[in-house]
């Protein structure tokens, strides 16, 4: 009975934090760095215990990022140490443009982290496509020298080349690394070897191919999905993919779960809840 009392009720309000540093990561991606409120003496001095707390963060989880008077959207944590954290943002719509326009001292609200992250196992291959690489960064930090495959359209969209030396790079136009898709590199790798786990985040068609390849070769995989989110904690039904709540049951799903999702790689829902093809969803229709 005790677990059914209100002690399970969790407050999850946004907490506003100032930008402390801005870094350009690529032609179109920028990182905003923040001080973790748990390590901020000013936060403690005001008697606050913010709901936003990254101490239990698991790679693959997300946070809701709020720009007052504009909007709030889910992002991954791409940098995390004892004192600071960062988000890496691809410029694509009004919200991400507003994040790109921020300077040190500007306020951004955070709540979370939310969702189920990656389940870490020894060994494995990390596959990041486009800004999906931002999701993989904290995972790579925690894995022991994983093999990393990164794909992007062109060289100037690649992320973290200095942070993670030795990545296997693919670009669509061949401007850096091999010419082709990151899935080609993965196909080659898993035909030669059978990794203990494949972790993937990127455009959903890419992840759908990764899943297919891994299932064909009996390699376990996990992939992180992206959907339009509202509550972020599993009550509103906005982000559901079939019967799964991406925000709470995911956003990371394993091979078996993904194989059971008829909408995976095919459909997503816009802000109104309208179901559209995944291409139309990513083509800028998602309320940005």
């Amino acid at each position: 009975m005790s677990d059914m009392r209100q002690s399970s009720w969790k407050s999850g309000l946004p907490f506003s934090i100032r930008v402390i540093e801005v870094r350009d990561e690529s032609r179109s991606a920028r990182t905003l760095m923040f001080r973790r409120p748990e390590s901020d003496p000013d936060v403690a001095a005001s008697g606050d215990a913010p709901d936003f707390n990254l101490s239990g963060f698991v790679p693959g989880q997300f946070v809701m990022v709020w720009i007052p008077r504009l909007d709030e959207k889910p992002f991954t944590i791409s940098y995390l140490d004892d004192r600071t954290f960062g988000i890496t943002v691809l410029k694509r719509g009004p919200f991400t443009k507003a994040l790109h326009a921020m300077n040190p001292g500007d306020w951004v609200g955070f709540r979370g982290p939310y969702g189920r992250g990656f389940s870490l196992s020894a060994g494995g291959v990390v596959v990041g496509g486009g800004v999906g690489m931002a999701t993989m960064a904290t995972l790579i930090d925690r894995l022991d020298k994983p093999k990393i495959l990164q794909g992007a359209r062109t060289a100037d969209e690649l992320l973290f080349l200095d942070r993670f030396p030795g990545m296997d790079i693919s670009t669509d136009d061949g401007s850096k690394g091999r010419r082709g898709f990151v899935t080609d590199a993965l196909a080659e790798l898993i035909s030669a070897d059978r990794p203990a786990m494949v972790y993937a985040c990127g455009p959903e068609p890419m992840m759908a191919r990764v899943l297919q390849m891994c299932r064909d070769r009996c390699v376990p995989c996990q992939a992180s999905l992206e959907r339009f989110m509202k509550c972020g904690f599993g009550v509103c039904g906005q982000c559901c993919c079939d019967g799964r709540r991406v925000c709470r049951d995911g956003p990371v799903f394993n091979s078996d779960e993904l194989a059971g999702l008829a909408s995976f790689g095919r459909f997503a829902r816009l802000k109104s809840g309208s179901k559209v093809g995944i291409g139309a969803y990513h083509g800028g229709g998602k309320g940005e």
């Binding site: 009720w9 407050s11 809701m64 709030e72 959207k73 509550c231 009550v235 509103c236 802000k271 809840g273």
Partner: peptide, 25 residues
């Protein structure tokens, strides 16, 4: 489309929401 986010938040004694009736029609 409903209202802009944040649309649903948990606070210490409940939820507060202004989803604004987003629905696909």
């Amino acid at each position: 489309d409903g209202h802009a986010n944040p649309t649903i938040l948990a606070f210490d004694a409940g939820l507060i929401n202004a989803v604004g009736y987003s629905n696909p029609g």
